[in-house]
């Protein structure tokens, strides 16, 4: 199995990097997942006036300052998207598409995405609606499946499903698909809702509808309760206390993903609080 980290931080915005820096200062073995550009929400800000110490700085300049700070502290960012964090009791397993990592404590600082669920998506989750086509493929042997793909990565899952299901309808939401196999029925359209009775039965598009035994929604960003199965969520945010603890022992959250206000300094402050409490948690575990 892989080497175990003391602390894994998911997200490279202000919350995540502030958490990582504070973890490193306390001599913990830290790993950060995110992007080398840190955060689009930092990079794209036209002008920032409310970050203490910086007046009239552009988001891109602020990003450079953050990057230099990380460099000085020798914190590297691993450019892999985390698919899930599993609380296994004594440690956490963190999985990406190709790898799996272990950590004693985890801080989620993944920001917020404003993509809304489809109507009926939550209601029928686990009743014909799923988020992992490859997982559930055996259940749809010789059945009809509809797959909504938010980005090109979903194509792989649709191709895989074709080996098993009798019919695969693929609805790409990003334009023309690139590597979809012949045999997959591509339908362009905007999904509106999922309908059914006891089970999901139909995906309604704005100009069409598709009857299916299974409907998969493959997003580019992971919903918080999919990212951390079993975590407590309220209004699309993690429920945390003043120590930034979630309901899962050893798992902390910081930044926009814990709720409003959505601001850099609040995010950085929460990242710090989360890191310091995670450090105590790690020390107690040893």
């Amino acid at each position: 199995m892989s080497d175990r980290y003391d602390l894994i931080v998911i997200g490279s915005g202000p919350a995540g990097i502030s958490a990582a820096i504070n973890g490193v200062i306390r001599n913990k073995k830290v790993k950060v997942f995110g992007s080398r550009n840190l955060s689009e929400k930092v990079q794209k800000a036209p002008r920032v006036d409310n970050y203490l110490g910086f007046h009239g700085i552009t988001g891109n300049e602020l990003k450079d300052v953050f990057s230099q700070h990380l460099e000085k502290m020798q914190v590297e960012i691993t450019e892999e998207k985390v698919d899930a964090v599993y609380a296994l009791g004594k440690y956490f397993a963190i999985t990406t598409k190709d790898n799996s990592y272990e950590a004693t404590s985890v801080i989620v600082a993944s920001g917020v995405s404003n993509k809304k669920s489809l109507e009926g998506e939550n209601e029928y989750l686990g009743k014909g609606v799923g988020y992992c086509a490859t997982c559930d493929a055996p259940i749809y042997k010789n059945k009809k499946v509809a797959i909504v793909g938010y980005d090109v990565h979903a194509e792989e899952e649709a191709n895989f499903m074709l080996d098993v299901a009798s019919e695969v309808v693929y609805i790409p939401l990003y334009g023309q698909p690139e590597k979809i196999k012949d045999g997959v029925n591509v339908v362009l359209g905007r999904p509106l809702r999922i309908e059914g009775n006891e089970k999901a039965e139909r995906l309604v598009l704005h100009n069409d509808h598709i009857d299916a035994d299974g409907i998969f929604i493959l997003k580019d960003s992971v919903e918080l309760d999919q990212l951390v199965p079993g975590v407590q969520i309220e209004d699309n945010h993690f429920v945390v206390n003043r120590k930034m603890e979630t309901n899962i022992e050893g798992l902390y959250a910081a930044g926009d993903c814990t709720g409003k206000p959505y601001q850099y300094l609040k995010a950085a402050g929460e990242g710090q609080v989360a890191a310091l409490n995670a450090v105590s948690f790690i020390d107690n575990m040893q």
Partner: peptide
């Protein structure tokens, strides 16, 4: 799996006296 209408895995079902009493879809902490 079909008879119990399992549509996603993992699904964990608790049976008591021959009846499914409770079910969880997906991973959960212990």
């Amino acid at each position: 799996s079909e008879a119990l209408r399992i549509t996603s895995i993992p699904t964990i079902v608790l049976f008591k006296e021959g009846q499914p009493k409770d079910a969880v879809v997906g991973f959960r902490p212990k």
